[in-house]
Design a binder for these strands. Structure first.
Lengths: 215, 215
DNA sequence: ATCTAGAGTTAGAAGCTATAGCTAACCCTT
DNA sequence: AAGGGTTAGCTATAGCTTCTAACTCTAGAT
């Protein structure tokens, strides 16, 4: 209970303020989107003046990087947890869609328009390959009786991104298609491009995956 | 040659300044992206002071709306021209991809992260349905020997967006899948998510379409 | 008890959007 | 040809942003 956690009170206080800043940043992000994320507004909502925030995050970009990292981690954990609890590829897709619908701005933070000056840090790429690895795992169980395509052959020679995964190229192909179709339908839906069209985006989502997974 | 064009000199001058502003806006957009589009910077590059620009565009959003409208028109014209010159669905996909690669920021202006406060004007929706109509046209020639899916049945009851197009629901389904797959692979590629992976995005793009179109 | 590190402050620079009020030039009409 | 209305441009300003600099003051460590 009253474990000191091995940290000095200053460090604990600092960690908590950092967490509070991030929490308010997420709230602001969820309501107004990334472009309207304001350090000043966060500081005022925390009861302190603007520049005080720079003790905790050196710049707006550094806070954004932290948010992106957290979002990636959240998605990777979700995908991994879903897979480890026995979900198949379709189950993963559903989990990802729910995750995105729960906070569209968080999804766009990762997969939306890249911000001009920003460059993702090294570890987000690591998490990204981690996600891809799980996606590949989720596709190894699927049948491979479809005829091999020329892209399969190309992937055979360009499978470094699979990080040594032993799955056949056709499976890597399926994982990539999975990712592309999930992203395609999901981002069009989240951006509102299906808004006035009347049909149910969830059914298009499911149909795109069905077409990929059954065969 | 020296046709007066029926416009007063003031109107002609105004139209030209508007065009120059838009041209500089496109240049700035192509290099730095939409978030860095600055009315001040455009004004200075045109040799006039910041607020002078507000005589021509009432706000940053109004200029953005104009740019979005132009981009939509450009894409719609491209798609229509490609179809009328005999391109099939795969040809349309190639044309769209080239159009997007030529100016990624323009593509993201239409299909990227929606800007928080902004609401698209009426006519962009009109152009969007115009594009969809051409996409449907491009898919009517394809065979329909695939088994009907439940999404086809759903589309039969929600085909208002097709604007009275007589194509069967399976064809509407194909047009939607086409759009989603084009957008999925293209936006992942343009956002750099395939950057360190080694394979050729053009081949994944082609494979995603092949899987849709051949059958 | 003293000293130092760090948290928070105000002030300010440079940038942005956008408004207000003014001048001057221009077009049109009389 | 002269006046009147329109409009293009200016400067100044308000209010917002990120971010730096210099200062105070307190809390933890020695």
């Amino acid at each position: 209970m009253t474990e000191t956690d091995g940290k000095s009170p200053r460090e604990r206080y600092r960690a908590q303020v950092c967490a509070e800043i991030k929490q308010h940043a997420w709230e602001q992000l969820a309501t107004t989107g990334v472009s309207a994320l304001s350090l000043n507004a966060i500081a005022k909502r925390l009861g302190m003046s603007g520049p005080a925030l720079y003790r905790y995050y050196a710049s707006r970009d550094e806070l954004l990087t932290e948010l992106i990292r957290d979002a990636y981690r959240s998605l990777a954990d979700l995908v991994r947890a879903a897979f480890e609890s026995g979900a198949d590829a379709a189950g993963l897709a559903h989990a990802i869609r729910d995750w995105a619908l729960a906070d569209p701005h968080r999804y766009f933070l990762l997969y939306g328009t890249p911000v001009p000056g920003y460059h993702a840090p090294e570890d987000t790429a690591t998490i990204s390959t981690e996600i891809m690895a799980v996606l590949i795992d989720a596709h190894v169980a699927l049948s491979l009786d479809r005829p091999a395509t020329s892209f399969d052959a190309h992937l055979e020679n360009h499978r470094d991104w699979a990080d040594g995964h032993p799955a056949p190229a056709a499976t890597l192909h399926r994982a990539l298609s999975f990712w592309a179709r999930v992203h395609g339908t999901l981002s069009l839906e989240l951006a509102g491009h299906f808004a006035g069209m009347g049909f149910d985006p969830a059914l298009l989502f499911a149909a795109e995956l069905d077409d990929l997974l059954k065969s």
